[in-house]
Write a protein that binds this DNA or RNA. Structure first.
Lengths: 329, 329
DNA sequence: TTGTACGCGTTATCAA
DNA sequence: TTGATAACGCGTACAA
């Protein structure tokens, strides 16, 4: 490897001079030219580790994501990438494969890398998670789940549930089926659902059935093949767009038509909802903006500025073709 | 920051002893216990930079991707993540936003980080790219595009095109429309297309029209709204699954039914092709395996082992509902 | 088993 | 403007 020493020797100057050239640039024209030439010749590149070691700063931000193949995650990630780049931070993205053990590991790894801050996409939040984060001295930000004592940035999931509930009632529906996910995920499994339930429960003559699945399309599809023929619901609320896409698929397979036989909606606002037929009514979440904001917030944390414990991102009902007025049958 | 020196002082031993404990572990029971306790108390974590600086090894692999929101990219990435984890490498993922300048930047950045090897998802490959890579002393691997002088791992795109061509001919089709992408992307824009063209051209009474779009769904959708009413083709070949999904969407919008009015196929084998109706015939690419193999190959490069310049990944025709026999109209 | 001393590549301080 | 030197945190000969 070619080091600053090599450059100095070949240029016939002290390495401190080369260093000065590299940073301030305040050197004489003559030596500057000489150094520039040697650097070009040798293809020298400063060693970031030595630099970080000295400067006690890495300019790196660590990100922990649950999986690499999620549309929403990637949107947020894209926002994180953009903003951190603007701010001169280098990103280290680690994947936990939806496994808590690996989440702990990744927190450790990133701490050892001496990243200046960590952003973690939270799924379920156990006491061990909180503990692991507190151990770390590194500024920390959770995305997606509200956490005690630790800063977080979340969606208004309860409100999103309310929006769908209100909208469905307005359409005249009274018989609902909610396809949810496990409650370990508080944001999606509890709040989103509760917002919906609290809203529709307020009405009269309402029936609400509930089914639980996971975040994968395939599970939702399999389950839908079973429950669709049995349900009396005229409006099916899916906890995510992926689930909605899968249920729609199963509906067609079984010969139902949406929204004639029942209305159907999701949450998220993924691109996929716009490229199926009918297009799916959903609540659009500002994923990219969330990524931008999360970096802003983390950087404030790094700089020890005051920031609110929880930041909430607003969302928006998007009405598409998959929902329509209740028709008496 | 708590360093190995602090631990040593508090434990009343030399830092070399602590270091030995950290690495070999060969210390007396007594000191071991003492050190362990102090480390637990202080939450000490070794500084990876100092470590890398000393060891001249970072155990990091750099990855350059064109964008964060691509299904195929993420599948490959997932494979890369899995294998590099198994092999004890830490991943640094950087995003180039489909911009050549940023690709060069990222190559630089990763080199400075002293990653041991770089995997880059290639889009278009210019002489500047080749030059930038050669500048770097870092072992380098291109994914997705064949490159002179530089190691690469690619799909059998030409063969994939052949498969679709052969299949379409067998179904009795004679009038084709190929929806392609710019030729800057040699793999998809040239080879995939050429494999198809060379195959169907061999027959008689064939007509082939060609349209060019980009990789986004929205562009393909907009264009499809225009060309679908005009085309006489009975089989539409889309260069990617995303394009196929968009064309299918436009077809429905316009009142056509697939495959009754025309057959339609894509390339890639994305999950999305299975969750639309009709499901889309495609060629399934082994993205995840490609990720695994690319790490294997890069590691061999790092260890200066002999490896073939180009590795090819096989693919497979997947027949779904969007294609059927040609029916005389 | 333990401790001393040095070097990894860089930057910062201070004197020349 | 330049150069000598110390320091960042760690690992490792080598000596004790």
């Amino acid at each position: 490897m070619v080091t600053i020493n090599d450059i100095a020797r070949k240029a016939g100057v002290a390495k401190s001079t080369v260093s000065r050239y590299l940073n301030n640039g305040s050197v004489s024209r003559e030596t500057r030219n000489k150094i520039e030439e040697i650097i070009r010749e040798t293809g020298y590149m400063p060693n970031n580790f030595a630099r970080s070691l000295k400067a006690q700063k890495t300019n790196m931000i660590g990100v922990i994501i649950p999986r690499l193949s999620s549309a929403s995650t990637n949107e947020v990630l894209s926002g994180i990438d953009e903003r951190s780049r603007q701010l001169g931070y280098q990103l280290i993205i680690t994947n936990s494969d939806q496994d808590s053990e690996r989440e702990f590991e990744n927190i450790q790894t990133l701490s050892k890398q001496k990243v200046e801050g960590i952003i973690m996409f939270a799924r379920e939040l156990t006491p061990e998670h909180i503990e692991a984060v507190k151990q770390t001295q590194t500024p920390f930000l959770f995305i997606g789940q509200r956490a005690e004592d630790i800063h977080s940035i979340i969606h208004q999931d309860y409100e999103a549930g309310e929006k769908i509930g209100k909208y469905a009632l307005e359409l005249g529906h009274r018989h609902f089926l909610f396809i949810g996910v496990p409650e370990k995920d508080r944001a999606v499994g509890v709040e989103r659902k509760q917002g919906f339930l609290d809203t529709v429960r307020a009405g009269h003559g309402i029936t609400i059935d509930t089914i639980e699945t996971d975040f994968s399309r395939s599970s939702a599809y399999q389950k839908a093949l079973k429950f669709l023929p049995e349900t009396l619901a005229t409006y099916i609320v899916c906890a995510t767009d992926n689930i909605a896409v899968a249920v729609l698929k199963a509906s067609k397979e079984l010969g139902y038509s949406v929204p004639e036989d029942f209305s159907l909606s999701g949450f998220g606002g993924y691109e996929a909802t716009a490229y199926v037929s009918p297009t799916i009514t959903t609540v659009s979440y500002p994923y990219r903006e969330m990524g931008l904001e999360s970096v802003d917030k983390l950087v404030k944390l790094i700089n020890k500025e005051e920031v609110p414990h929880v930041s909430e991102m607003k969302n928006e009902l998007v009405i598409n073709q998959s929902t329509t007025f209740f028709k008496k049958v």
